[in-house]
Amino acid sequence: MSKYPLGIGTVAALAIVACIVILLLKEAKPELAPMVSVAFGVAVLLWLVTPIKDVITTLISIANKTGISNELIDPMLKVAGIALVAEFAASVCNDCGQGSLASRVETAGKVVILSISIPIIMGLLDTVLSVVP
């Protein structure tokens, strides 16, 4: 835990601080309140970069040890990244009160993820078809 920049306690405390700041700004300047939530979301994701990097390195080393090819691991990581970005953008849109924009972003994310995972699905289909006579 100590090798990462922040623990869960710090993140939770800072989230509460950000909540109070947002409450304060909603009275004074309502148009700046979503900015604080966006800034906090980006800051938390940037703090999470180091743990995510560790997890990815471990995953890649496991894949190398078990002989899984990079063509299967790379799309998986890409899907995780796209899901992260799309979910972030969708929740920002939701915060700004634009639910329809949020669902469009989610749809775009799903379509991109599907298009990335098509080679894997086709590979699975080929394997199944080669086993079944």
Partner: peptide, 15 residues
């Protein structure tokens, strides 16, 4: 990056 939150709050109150 938590500085940015307080900066935004300060700008909001000033505005």
């Amino acid at each position: 990056q938590i500085d940015l939150i307080f900066k935004i709050a300060a700008i909001g109150i000033l505005l």
